[in-house]
């Protein structure tokens, strides 16, 4: 699919309410039952004071935004480099953000480099990073 994205363009936004129920379902789907995510008693004694969402659950929202923007090109050529900067807690409504940083010709298409991330209700970035996708012409 040809991409019409240009430098400076904003990427699609994905918003999601992160609930403890969603975190539990993600634990079951991913097999990651670390108590920091699902055991309120354990998590209360941690530096976070309560459970936090899996980083990969929040990262999935960035991938979803890229899939909306680039469909199959993302699935077949996407690259993602993320840092998990701040915890997302149950009750947080988070939103992805992203912008095209560079577009360059590459192998019969274009390589699109984007800055991406996920913000929390207070504006703090839970995740920041870079996504790269090769869009075919």
């Amino acid at each position: 699919m040809a991409s019409s994205y240009r430098e400076g363009d904003k990427l699609p936004t994905v918003e999601r309410l992160i609930t403890q129920e969603r975190i539990q379902r993600y634990a079951e789907a991913s097999g990651d039952f670390n108590p920091i995510h699902i055991d309120p008693g354990f998590a209360a004694l941690s530096q976070f004071g309560g459970t936090i969402a899996h980083g990969m659950l929040i990262a999935a929202l960035v991938s979803e935004a890229m899939a909306v923007g680039f469909t199959r090109d993302w699935v077949e050529t996407g690259r993602l480099k993320l840092r998990f900067r701040a915890p997302v807690k149950p009750g947080d409504r988070v939103a992805t953000f992203g912008k095209v940083k560079r577009v360059r010709e590459a192998d019969g298409g274009s390589e699109i480099v984007c800055s991406v991330g996920v913000s929390k209700p207070d504006g703090e970035s839970a995740v920041t990073g870079e996504a790269v996708v090769r869009a075919r012409t």
Binding site: N34, A59, R72
Partner: peptide, 18 residues
């Protein structure tokens, strides 16, 4: 057998085929 309290600090991923 990752220990309770382990955190995920960063992730790099490259998808190459559907």
């Amino acid at each position: 057998a990752i220990q309770p309290g382990t955190l995920h600090a960063g992730q790099e991923i490259e998808f190459t085929k559907a």
